[in-house]
Design a protein around this nucleic acid. Sequence first.
DNA 1: GGCTTCTGTCATAAAATTGTCACCAAATGT
DNA 2: ACATTTGGTGACAATTTTATGACAGAAGCC
Lengths: 235, 235
Amino acid sequence: MTASTILIVDDEAAIREMIRVGLELAGYECLEASNAQDAHGIIVDQRPDLVLLDWMMPVTSGLELLRRLRRDDLTRDLLVIMLTAKDDEDNRVQGLDVGADDYITKPFSSRELMARIKAIMRRSTTREQEASIEVGGLKLDPASHRVFVDTQPLDMGPTEFKLLKFFMTHQERAYSRGQLLDQVWGSNVYVEERTVDVHIRRLRKALQTDQRDCGLLIQTVRGTGYRFSTTGVCA
Amino acid sequence: MTASTILIVDDEAAIREMIRVGLELAGYECLEASNAQDAHGIIVDQRPDLVLLDWMMPVTSGLELLRRLRRDDLTRDLLVIMLTAKDDEDNRVQGLDVGADDYITKPFSSRELMARIKAIMRRSTTREQEASIEVGGLKLDPASHRVFVDTQPLDMGPTEFKLLKFFMTHQERAYSRGQLLDQVWGSNVYVEERTVDVHIRRLRKALQTDQRDCGLLIQTVRGTGYRFSTTGVCA
DNA sequence: GGCTTCTGTCATAAAATTGTCACCAAATGT
DNA sequence: ACATTTGGTGACAATTTTATGACAGAAGCC
């Protein structure tokens, strides 16, 4: 479980607990703003993935901060987990009403915390759904994670799928092997550039059917890299 | 307030109270069954709109009866209000967990009882019946809680049923193990993601008959998760 | 309380994917 | 034409991912 930034609002103990548990925090902050407006400002600056919001804040009301977060476009999509000191049903309901994604009752077990965070972050990835891309006789559907050539499903490995998806969303443009590694493999892996060649080959092969050869859509740009283009429609 | 039938379980005083209050009972019954099974049978016969379930029953446990009611398709949708003698938090939580619609602490005022009943019955109008889903030779009927392959009933565990139901209502789309855990198990449980694999296996096996193998409808999406798709019709 | 079924987790087997190489083919340059 | 560079291909061993059988504890059932 990794979260690029987690912002802890007014709860040092929670921070310690999370670190102990092994949650990988790229950064965190313990808010000590004197009012909801300041707190909101800090959150906007930090751009965390997740906010643990203590209901019982010393100065300002957690409820007001939550409302403010939900009102602002910049912070509207933030995942907010509310911490309630006791099993206070009223606060809980009120909080969920205003738009908290979840709540945890203190004291909470680290297992529970982790489970909730995981669940919340999983859920967030489900929110958006990508449209399927279609070009020539080729159709790529991100939802079902499949590729068709004229309604016939194709078979390919995960890397080939990602590669094709990248190409289809970046048509008519040449990419070097290095760029492809960055975009498809990720910028922090080290693999030989020639590896790209092999996967291009595999993708091309996967794009062949008895009727058509859509592998032709992937053109090699000698001395540079590869390009996905429709100017050579799959034969 | 009218209820065609109200069934009182093991609480004469409550009946008297309700009648005194003016609740229009089209009929009522005071259960004196010696065990949960008999009680369940009587309830099935009576088809009441509402069950007032006393937690402290002399012979059988109210909890078990409640569970039984929720498990049986015939009684699953019944409105159940739990009566707890004292403000017993544990029982209350346990009861709501198993699926009571509400609870009332004894002694209760007639006003409160009426209010709860009203609220509950309002809520109930929202409940709708689910239609059975059919795809390929597979038919899933939520009402009877059963699955057929060409009229032949299949046998599977509760989790497998829920999993299949989710898949059949979300076809042609890949889901990660985490998403499945959220959707089928619930977002607040923490189990290993590998557990999904095992249940997928069990479901696939359950979907096999001598004639067909509908387990093929569940496809694995390597590196991602699973997908329910008809493009590979059960052989 | 005894008995059966269901569940989650492991350990292990099986299968698919991946990154590299070595080697061949095509293109480029002189 | 020859030498050199760049891309295409098949093979392969390591690694990762999934499938499967076994099992103990939990939950349900009579």
